[in-house]
């Protein structure tokens, strides 16, 4: 993308990103009366769950947790495309998908790779397209990452990939509370 175009698009991007973030609710907080949970501490981890990302689905597609449990998710992207692992409600995912769409439109997300330089670029006002929410990891093919998450209470949650189209095609899993 050339510089002129980038500059012209900046205000729109910033606006959309920030509104998207608000719409998605403060991660770790409450949304629509549902507790998503919060980033966990390593010492509280009771279990490790391995999640494999394929194109475009997860293995496993369903995870059972207990309220209050802290889980270490070891996520590996074995697909050929960029994928996300994001814990949230369906509404949060939907809101996040708009942000991800923007990342695609601006060349940050390129199908099978992430343009990190572009992603971290300061868009003015200290905003960037940085993907650094604690409930989510965005990964290139072959990458492995971890999330430690505490599920504070039972809620209607899904883990999902919000790369445009992936969630709709079926790249989501259910989090069931026991």
């Amino acid at each position: 993308m050339n510089q002129i175009l980038k500059n012209a698009l900046l205000p729109a991007m910033v606006l959309a990103i920030s509104s998207g973030a608000y719409a998605a609710g403060e991660h770790g907080g409450h949304h629509g009366g549902e507790a998503v949970g919060e980033p966990g501490k390593a010492e509280n981890v009771s279990r490790t769950i391995d999640v494999t990302m394929m194109d475009n689905y997860y293995e496993p597609e369903s995870i059972a947790v207990e309220p209050g449990e802290t889980i270490r998710f070891r996520v590996k992207n074995e697909g050929a495309l960029v994928h996300e692992f994001n814990i949230g409600t369906a509404d949060m995912h939907e809101a996040h998908q708009k942000e991800m769409q923007m990342m695609v439109e601006h060349g940050v997300l390129k199908g099978d790779r992430i343009d990190h330089e572009m992603m971290e670029m300061d868009m003015g006002d200290g905003h960037s397209m940085k993907h650094d929410d604690p409930n989510s990891v965005l990964m290139e093919p072959g990458e492995s990452k971890e999330i430690i998450w505490t599920f504070t209470e039972a809620a209607d949650l899904e883990f999902a990939c919000n790369v445009p189209g992936h969630y709709q095609a079926g790249m989501y899993g259910d989090i069931e509370f026991e």
């Binding site: 475009n56 495309l81 199908g111 445009p164 189209g165 992936h166 709709q168 095609a169």
Partner: peptide, 17 residues
């Protein structure tokens, strides 16, 4: 309804909304 295109001419494509 939004449609997510997942296949064209029998071959899976990267999904497009």
């Amino acid at each position: 309804l939004e449609m997510t295109v997942v296949q064209a001419d029998g071959n899976n494509v990267q999904p497009v909304n």
